[in-house]
Design a protein around this nucleic acid. Structure first.
Length: 487
RNA sequence: CGGGGCGUAGCGCAGCCUGGUAGCGCGCCUGCCUUGGGCGCAGGAGGUCCCGAGUUCAAAUCUCGGCGCCCCGACCA
């Protein structure tokens, strides 16, 4: 239920976020520290994210699979970077059926190892390749500091895993899936992202190259919203994943993995949300249209509800996700606020006056108050609403992109850089050295978010120059990189 | 793991210092009234005061021990 008002984002962004997640009933705290219960409204959003991604995965030839939750501990230890990266955050099972286990099992933090193990059995010939798999599951990483959706001990995600005959093909796959994530973020979630490569310090434990989509949240902090890894032959060698090529030569496979998690829900909240609450991107919104009936007398109620039900049927037929709010005992005004807090893109207000003239009042969530309200005739409401949803999607994206650009500064010296990361992204030349990166992190709390694949798209206009000096050490720069404080 | 805060009705909190009938707001239930931007009135239900031990005639309150959660920091493909 909606009760008191939220703190504003300006007052306390973190508290705004926490309260919103609880009040909008997206999720709740579990009895175990750091764990999250995803409630129906949050899960419905996740299901829409899943289907938007899943159809893209299928369209690019991937098949879904299910690998087990428990992995022999020794598997994790086979790839040296992987074990180093993950061992501090593993949950380990040492007792089963009341007996101490001969070999401890870990709860998967990700499935590269067990998949590699099985691939070594399944893959023998170049004819078996490529292998293109994905699984929807949850994983566990024992994080110290948690926050609903953004970082929890257990989280839901998809992990794609592929094996290829050549380096080129695997690199191609890695980039293709990064494109899939970008396309999803932009076209379904209305979130502008910067696709780019991670530094060695920030990449996945065991990857040769990690790519990510980075988004800027409403408080100026960065959120890595999806990742795609080129794993080289690291896991293939560790798990002996080999195939016989056309020339009868035994070769190691080249593998990739890529994932996007319920963390993305955090991005949706923090990119689009406002002081009234959530703002759902229309294509992912669990409810796209809410109908709020208004009446005083029983006769009015009967006639309004009859029309409302017909209207709902009409909208459902047009493939819209519709909720008719028939709850008794709540005033229309209360319902308006409630659905606004939950971020429903379009509200239809239907009262006796509207029924009389075969019309309804429409209100769009992205334009608060009178400005976003107008009357539309019932006859062509499905078409009107479909058009409106498309407009809302576009305006959410435009607004988010404008915000990101306004808070992304091309910085040529360290003073400007320090100022820029206070409020958003700094776009700066970087020599590529891990020492500079570490010093920057130490001094500014900002990390290297990514080296954009398309640097010119970052600012949306031509930038100062194509080459320059490292913003920290002044040596000739190898890269132009995005820095920011991150979640 | 360091620093801070907190644990009392479903939620948010007061009471604790100075021991003596467990309270307020919201929510919930019933009825009436209202409903086009978070209505109102009346009545009602709901408590192992985080757990354990101690002091005391008497503990939510004092003492000791434990557990848990939140925030900040460290840490975090």
């Amino acid at each position: 239920m909606a009760e008191d008002k939220l703190p504003t984002r300006a007052q306390d962004f973190s508290e705004w976020y926490n309260q919103l997640v609880l009040k909008a009933q997206l999720a709740d705290y579990a009895p175990v520290r750091g764990c999250m219960i995803v409630r129906p409204y949050g899960w419905a959003l996740w299901e829409n994210i899943q289907s938007a991604l899943d159809r893209r995965f299928k369209a690019t030839g991937h098949q879904n699979v299910a690998f087990p939750l428990l992995i022999p501990k020794s598997f994790i230890e086979k790839e040296k970077h992987h074990v180093k990266g993950f061992s501090p955050e593993l949950a380990v099972v040492t007792i089963g059926g009341g007996e101490e286990l001969a070999e401890p099992l870990v709860i998967r933090p990700t499935s590269e190892t067990i998949i590699g193990h099985m691939w070594s059995k399944w893959i023998q010939s170049y004819r078996d390749l490529p292998v293109l798999m994905n699984q929807w599951n949850s994983v566990v990483r024992w994080e110290l500091r948690t926050k609903l959706f953004l970082r929890t001990l257990e989280f839901y995600w998809q992990e794609g895993h592929t094996a290829h005959a050549t380096r080129e093909e695997a690199v191609e796959e890695t980039k293709q899936m990064l494109d899939v994530y970008t396309d999803f973020a932009v076209n379904d979630a209305a979130i502008p992202v910067i696709p780019g490569a991670k530094s060695d310090a920030e990449k996945f434990a065991g990857a040769e190259v990690t790519y990510a989509i980075e988004a800027l949240m409403g408080d100026g902090k960065a959120l890595q919203s999806g990742t795609s890894h080129f794993l080289g032959q690291n896991f293939a060698q560790a798990f002996d994943v080999k195939y016989l090529d056309q020339n009868g030569q035994l070769q190691y496979c080249w593998t990739t993995s890529w994932g996007l998690s319920t963390r993305f829900i955090g991005a949706i909240i923090m990119v689009h949300g406002d002081d009234q609450g959530l703002v759902m991107p229309p294509k992912l919104a669990p409810t796209q249209v809410v109908i709020v009936p208004i009446y005083k007398t029983d006769e009015e109620k009967a006639s309004v509800l009859k029309t409302a039900k017909e209207l709902k049927a009409q909208l459902v037929k047009a493939n819209l996700r519709v909720t008719l709010d028939e709850r008794e005992g709540f005033s229309p005004g209360w319902k308006f606020n409630d659905w606004e807090m939950r971020g429903v893109p379009v509200r239809v207000e239907l009262g006796p006056r509207d029924v009389a003239k075969q019309a309804a009042m429409l209100a769009r969530r992205d334009k608060p108050g009178r400005e976003g309200k107008f009357s539309a005739s019932l006859a062509d409401l499905p078409a009107t609403i479909e058009k409106l949803l498309a407009e809302i999607h576009q305006s959410l994206f435009d607004k988010a992109l404008a915000f990101r650009r306004a808070n992304t500064h091309e910085t040529l010296n360290y003073d400007d850089f320090k100022k820029a990361v206070e409020t958003g992204f700094a776009f700066a030349f970087w020599c590529g050295s891990g020492d500079c990166e570490a010093s920057i992190k130490e001094e500014t709390r900002a990390t290297m978010r990514c080296i954009p694949l398309d640097p010119d798209a970052v600012l949306g206009h031509g930038s100062a120059s194509g080459s320059g000096a490292c913003v920290y050490c002044g040596k000739p720069a190898a890269h132009r990189a995005i820095f920011g404080r991150a979640y």
